[in-house]
């Protein structure tokens, strides 16, 4: 019963707060560019409007194009269950990090297929770039989890979060290295600077936007919302795994509320971090991105060597 209750809260958190996180990031970026920026609630309005718009689908589209938004959005709900929001939860069959990484890959797989499906030149190139980046980022992502997994002697995300919150000071350096490479992968997987420009349309270098160019109406809303959720999921993973403070509040509604407040603050911190990083970095040339992702991978290897030699 408590399990179902906690899952419901996590799903509501992810789906409900992810547009707000995007709004905050956009607002901070706008302010750093001396603009007024949009209202914080604008992403919600966008989604609501898109959901009530009529839809145009290409005549070239097959069932993959039509089915992908539902699948991709469904995956983010599935991932929401696997988040280390409540680290006290100890249920062995939920929250394996390989599962999380591969479910993310499943979403990328279908998004790339949908990009190819409509037969436009943009979509194909978007998919090609996305799969290139994804195939390079996956190694870094799995390994930044693995650093913690080897230290915690478990690949379960909840167990890892529990471990990191009580880790001794010797583990600090490897954990920081893993956190740096996790942030690199976060930027790559969510098509943010320096990998991709999230606010562009019709730029020849776009990645994510190129794939979803043909979507409209409710399916566009689903895809956009799923992208918001994905960023929130990454932020929550980072918050749970690398900033696991304040987990030790007592049970009961009051403790939970305090905990949720702290959790929101951590998410906010990561949102600010992403916004500042995006505002201070220039977009990289596409063929320089692998250097960045290999750096992430090598940082992880270093961190693991450190942990093994401890």
């Amino acid at each position: 019963m408590t399990l179902a209750f906690i899952w419901t809260i996590q799903i509501i958190l992810v789906l409900g707060l992810s547009p707000l996180l995007i709004g905050i990031i956009k607002k901070i970026k706008a302010r750093l560019q001396s603009r007024q920026g949009i209202n914080l609630l604008q992403p919600y309005r966008d989604l609501w409007k898109l959901l009530h718009k009529d839809e145009v689908i290409s005549t070239d589209a097959s069932w993959i194009f039509k089915f992908s938004p539902y699948l991709i959005f469904g995956l983010t709900i599935f991932l929401a269950i696997n988040l280390p929001v409540f680290a006290r939860l100890n249920f062995p069959y939920v929250g394996d990090f390989l599962l999380v990484a591969y479910v993310l890959a499943l979403g990328t797989f279908f998004l790339a297929l949908a990009g190819l499906d409509i037969g436009s030149a943009f979509g194909g190139f978007g998919s090609s770039r996305e799969m290139t980046l994804a195939s390079l980022a996956e190694g870094g992502l799995i390994f930044s989890f693995l650093v913690l997994a080897i230290a915690a002697k478990s690949t379960n995300i909840y167990a890892i979060a529990g471990f990191v919150s009580q880790a001794s000071v010797f583990y600090l350096l490897p954990i920081i290295l893993a956190a740096i490479s996790f942030v690199m992968c976060l930027l790559a997987e969510n098509s943010r600077y320096p990998f991709d420009n999230p606010s562009t349309h019709l730029e020849l270098t776009m990645v994510h936007e190129a794939m979803i160019l043909e979507y409209s109406g409710k399916r566009l809303a689903l895809i956009e919302w799923a992208a918001y959720n994905k960023l929130f999921i990454f932020a929550a993973l980072a918050a749970g795994l690398f900033l696991p403070f304040g987990l030790s509040f007592g049970a009961g509604i009051f403790g939970m509320l305090i905990y949720l407040a702290i959790f929101s603050l951590k998410i906010l911190f990561i949102g600010v971090l992403v916004a500042v990083l995006e505002s201070t970095l220039a977009k990289f040339r596409f063929f320089r991105l692998p250097d960045l992702l290999f750096t992430a991978f090598i940082l992880n290897i270093l961190a693991i060597v450190l942990i093994i030699s401890l």
Partner: peptide, 26 residues
Amino acid sequence: LAIGVVAAVIYFITRKNKVTANRTWD
């Protein structure tokens, strides 16, 4: 389950929307 719920909810919200087929924009 996740995909099924999403499909059902979205169908319910957008059942009045029209879907038209057209050429891919290029």
